[in-house]
Amino acid sequence: MDGSGIRQALSMMNERGSGEGAGYVAYGVYPDYRDCYALHVFFDNIRENKIIVDAALEQWGTIEHDEAIPTYDQPNLRSVHTPWRYFFKPDPSLAPASTSPEDDIVSALVMRVNTARRGALIFSSGKNVGVFKAGGWPEDVADFYRIEDYEGYTWLAHNRYPTNTPGWWGGAHPFNLLGWSVVHNGEITSYGTNRRYIESLGYICTMYTDTEVVAYLIDLLVRRHGLDLDLAVRALAPPFWEEIDRMPEAKQEWNRALRLTYAPAMMNGPFAIVAADADTMVGFTDRSKLRPMVVGECAAASTSLAKRRRSAPWNRKSNRSPCRLQENR
């Protein structure tokens, strides 16, 4: 599906936004470069900052192609960055100790470029996936990128009501690292714990906002620790001890182990999160359900259902049928 449907869906939520940040992510948008990492970058100043990213990428692999992301001026959206995209192939021989050298090189490059704060911010880094975000109302952001020109099989969209960093393009959702993209509503009260944990394991938080850690935590648990998605979500929003105590013994044992091992990854505070990678979309809320999540499914034209989910997580394997999911901020 192209982006027009998701643009229309998100515009319904304008009442709950503030016009200071919105974004979209689409999977399957770069079929011609499906084997390359698509790096989306915000440049503050194209002449001054681009050479730094070019040099970093060339040091670690090959730039197959790069170009400005086409944008179209909108009266209500002030373009403060130049969005650029690279299609990049890392050289796996440069990270011989790694079991997933390409991912590791790209992830390290993202951290390095973003930490340097030299007027370049890589905000999307997966294969055949692209994040399109900016400060503004959802329709303006959609029109700025003309997202209807992109064909994707999974879309996430987000309308932001920022409190901490209004107008900061890097703070708009979705957040992405490699294959995983995240949209989030809420405030993560455990952010300090989560950030210190993730930063002790090689990630660096650079976006001035809490959602960023979710993308890194999912990357850590799923890609680096090899947990399946359900278990990763369970580590992030685990059952209460009281529930664990009531489980059958074997189940109790691994649930207990999961909470002990990933205590600093556990997220607290009110949140509703939807994350996606190339094959899957998953939604989950905080353990106390302080934020609601509404899931609408439209598997075939004849049946449809919408229900308020009381239990996290909600998870579906993408079968590439039309699927739209709204998230309320």
């Binding site: 455990s190 952010y191 300090g192 714990t193 210190r196 205590a263 600093p264 607290n268 505070g269 106390s288």
Partner: peptide, 16 residues
């Protein structure tokens, strides 16, 4: 009051 429902989310949470 801090919006935290489990002690491990306070541990090392110097932001609070």
């Amino acid at each position: 009051a801090a919006g935290i429902n489990s002690i491990e989310s306070l541990r090392g949470n110097r932001d609070r």
